[in-house]
Design a protein around this nucleic acid. Sequence first.
DNA 1: CCGGATCCGTAACGATACTG
DNA 2: CAGTATCGTTACGGATCCGG
Lengths: 225, 225
Amino acid sequence: MTTPQRTYGQRCGLALSLDLLGERWTLLVIRELTRGPKRFKDLMDALDGIGTNLLSSRLKTLEEAGIAQKVELPPPASTTAYSLTERGRGLQPILEDLALWGLGLMPPINERPDLTTRASWAAMTMLATMDRDPRPAPDGIYAFSVGDEDFWLEVKEGRSELRDGLPQVTPDAHLEIELEDFLMVSIGETTLDEVSNEVGGDRPRLATLLETFRIPVEAVQPAGT
Amino acid sequence: MTTPQRTYGQRCGLALSLDLLGERWTLLVIRELTRGPKRFKDLMDALDGIGTNLLSSRLKTLEEAGIAQKVELPPPASTTAYSLTERGRGLQPILEDLALWGLGLMPPINERPDLTTRASWAAMTMLATMDRDPRPAPDGIYAFSVGDEDFWLEVKEGRSELRDGLPQVTPDAHLEIELEDFLMVSIGETTLDEVSNEVGGDRPRLATLLETFRIPVEAVQPAGT
DNA sequence: CCGGATCCGTAACGATACTG
DNA sequence: CAGTATCGTTACGGATCCGG
């Protein structure tokens, strides 16, 4: 069915939110959509284990609730995709807060090699950290190619945005790096100078950005837990 | 079982948070605990439909994760209860944000009479609104007796806290009012002067408080959805 | 190949009964 | 009152199938 019948039945904003968003996978679908429109298959690839029926059902629910919508991607990739509505984007800060809270649950990188690791998830955490940092990040458009993932970040007058794919304009800087190295840089465990990578454009600006655009490593759990 | 085996298996703060908090009822249990320690039965009463086994399981999980803890209530009510840990309290702003987001899903009061309605849930929304309002609320301790619910609010130097029960000290003001009237006042649909109630203590200060301590009615949906 | 819909075994949930 | 045990029901996970 498109909408499950289990409702908390409470006149409470939180309970009503959870009636809509509290089911398995729902918030992770929204997480993926925050970085731009995604096709059905893109979501399937990012959400390992979800199953086509569940994803289909979730998307239908989100559509009916006005959180996501079907969009036609412009040519040449003329397919249907899903994107967040304005209301859906209103959830992004909440997802970011939850993600930052969840850093306290994150095992060190070398442990739990079974966990799926994606650079764009780390980038979302870095973005959330940056947005909550009083220090301003340098304006610009920064492109990243991490392993097989491409995404880019736009910083403009204190506001920042993260999107999958390649920017339509030439970025101010472009970083090409392997996933493991990116993760190490993301938590400040190492710097660009110490790992293999290729930078195009304004390298100093990129380096400055990466100082703010960084996961607070203190939050990451040590060995135990 | 105490811990379900379904995990997203993703190295992502959001996914890890949801592994722990994303199951049914979990965040609502935490919501109840934000207003002070609760006994097993208190939680059962507030969370209609949860079932004893589920509640037991959720509490165990929260305890193991260091979000809640068992506490011994002081005499005369010497029973065991559950309270949030420091880490658990870190979730409160997130719950508040989700609750405010969920106001957009809330039907008008006269519709959906099937929804369980509690003054403390409305009060949590009012608190969240107040905390995000740049206008300062007047310091003080305010006690509320709404129907059969008692709770009190402490405002001190811009920080505020909502707790169930009666304050240990004499409050600066005390409001006694019926549930329906409280709800109408909470959304600014009416004022204290227009409904039946009894105020003890500093009435002007209470009135001032209620101006800030109010649910933004614009967010509440009109008839349709 | 992509975007689903259908089917089915399994795990989580809901309600009730029972116990210290 | 604070749970544990049991059992029917619902949601989820994985696979298969099908139309464009």
